[in-house]
């Protein structure tokens, strides 16, 4: 474990020094993510000009949810997104070989090698928006409730990572993987809206097989409406099942992988 932490420290140092070599790009990327945050805030401000409630939440409660998904997005952008973006390329070109021969977990190495320093700055901004949204809500803040919400958001980010990886893993059997990213990003739009607006079989799918509603909505619900053990159990069960599915597909993918000729 300590060896992995040390290794991750090396990844971070290397990524930060590389990011600072391209300073204009660094700040463009920071600005791009800030614009995304601004667009989300503007979107909900305009929506609440038309309605007092959205999925049972008022404006302030929805802002707490929105700040939560911005944090989830910023965590994944910082820690895994760059790595997953290049994963299909690594499989197609045979670059995966270099990861497989290292004396560490190849999944760990592939998922965490590139730490996005610019997104880390955006994570700080997202946390600022999160603190602002919490402060303006009428919910009494306790160390316990805020810590639970933060912990749930971290698990939401883990779910986000697993879903992204599961969706792009078919690249082991396909010729091109760029369309798979498109599918994931299209589906991740469902994460950006409160879960209660979805109904019927779509909602069932979004809280089980494609758990985009669990990533930010469920953590916000537990913070805004109080801890419910059945909801927490459901959340943890989905994470466990998804992790098992991920490992099965990953191992099957490695068996199908035939280096540069794939």
């Amino acid at each position: 474990m300590l060896r992995y932490l040390r290794l991750y420290g090396h990844f971070m140092r290397f990524s930060i020094s590389r990011a600072l070599e391209f300073r204009i790009d660094f700040f463009f990327r920071v600005f791009m993510d800030l614009a995304y945050y601004g667009i989300q805030i503007a979107f909900y401000q305009v929506i609440f000009l038309q309605t007092p409630l959205l999925g049972g939440w008022n404006r302030d409660q929805t802002l707490v949810f929105m700040a939560g998904f911005l944090v989830v997005d910023a965590i994944t952008m910082t820690v895994v997104s760059n790595n997953l973006w290049f994963f299909p390329v690594a499989v197609n070109r045979g670059d995966l070989d270099y990861y497989l021969v290292r004396p560490v977990s190849s999944l760990f190495f592939l998922s965490l090698r590139d730490f996005a320093a610019n997104s880390f700055l955006n994570l700080l901004f997202a946390m600022g928006i999160f603190a602002w949204a919490l402060a303006r809500s009428s919910i009494p803040l306790t160390v316990g409730s805020v810590s639970l919400y933060a912990a749930m958001l971290m698990l939401g980010a883990f779910l986000h990572y697993m879903m992204h990886l599961i969706i792009i893993l078919p690249v082991f059997w396909l010729q091109s993987g760029s369309g798979l990213h498109g599918i994931f990003y299209s589906m991740s739009r469902f994460m950006e809206r409160p879960d209660r607006i979805f109904t019927g079989w779509v909602r069932k799918a979004l809280v089980t097989a494609f758990p985009f509603c669990l990533m930010a909505s469920f953590p916000a619900r537990m913070f805004l409406e109080g801890l419910r053990w059945d909801v927490l159990a459901h959340f943890m069960a989905v994470i466990a099942v998804l992790f098992a599915v991920l490992l099965v597909i990953w191992n099957a993918g490695l068996k199908a992988y035939s280096s540069a000729s794939s």
């Binding site: 929506i47 038309q50 007092p52 959205l54 589906m187 469902f190 809206r193 607006i197 109904t199 779509v202």
Partner: peptide, 16 residues
């Protein structure tokens, strides 16, 4: 995905 999210979003707003 764009249509689906918009469908549920505005359905909820019209209902509210």
């Amino acid at each position: 995905s764009q249509f689906g999210v918009a469908f549920f979003l505005w359905k909820a707003i019209f209902a509210a």
